[in-house]
Write a protein that binds this DNA or RNA. Structure first.
Lengths: 135, 135
DNA sequence: GTGACACTTTACGTTAACGTAAACTTCATT
DNA sequence: AATGAAGTTTACGTTAACGTAAAGTGTCAC
């Protein structure tokens, strides 16, 4: 069974990034596509990685951070206890970050709600004034 | 009643940022402390703004984005209907961003859970091997 | 009045994450 | 055979968000 592969521009189109960016991610050690001649060929694993990279970006992870996570994960396959312990620690670190972000998001959502209310109030205020002058 | 004020280094210490950063935020139009001579004096409103700036940063907002939000909010005080409508639109745009982030966080949390499981499994695998050789 | 700090401005340096241009190669079409 | 589309490498340019060094001002303790 031959699993699906992708060209660089296919991935670029699918995830709405430039080919330049994808090559850059490879340059930074985040992707390792195979090659036919000098043309890059991306596997579905590469595709997943790209998805993870972009998800990380949306959460404010730097490429270096994401790369470290990838490396840790790959290293953990070696099975060394030390690597595994380190990976566990990193995982829990990230978890803490995410929890902080959840708190932050909740706060900002409250502020947005608040802002919207005031905004709508100010608008209805304006409307009633319009009515006044119309009468 | 005179409300509390803060020096630049007080704020820097409280929020664990450099004074350089705080001055930079002012330079970018995000803060507008008053002055006694040439020394900056921060009000509690300034303090709130700084808190918002940092919260935004943790969520991956650029300083420019946060600044736009501040400006929109300030402009909305003028009460012009156009400003208010624009503010409403922007608020809902940010809300959408936050929802995407919530989804992203949920996904990453799942991946972390998954990774941790595999990791723990690999560790217990190692442990049982240790037992074997000990016997 | 003189350190010793805390504050200030000015300005050049740095890193991350690409953008962009130049100059190829490969391959499919006309 | 030539044109065009998609791929490639190399390399310099750019923006954001500060770091860092230099040089000066204000004021409080001694």
């Amino acid at each position: 069974m031959i699993s699906k592969t992708y060209s660089i521009s296919e991935l670029a189109a699918e995830f709405d990034v430039t080919t330049r960016s994808i090559r850059f991610y490879e340059d930074q050690g985040l992707l390792h596509p195979s090659r036919r001649g000098q043309t890059r060929i991306y596997s579905s694993k590469d595709r997943v990685r790209l998805k993870l990279i972009l998800r990380g970006k949306r959460l404010g992870f730097s490429l270096a951070e994401t790369r470290e996570l990838f490396d840790l994960w790959d290293d953990s396959l070696s099975g060394s206890e030390k690597q595994l312990q380190l990976l566990l620690k990193t995982i829990n670190g990230k978890r803490a970050e995410l929890e902080q972000q959840l708190k932050d998001i909740a706060m900002v959502q409250l502020e947005l709600d608040n802002a919207e209310s005031r905004c709508l109030e100010a608008l209805s205020e304006l409307e009633s004034k319009k009515q006044m002058t119309a009468e």
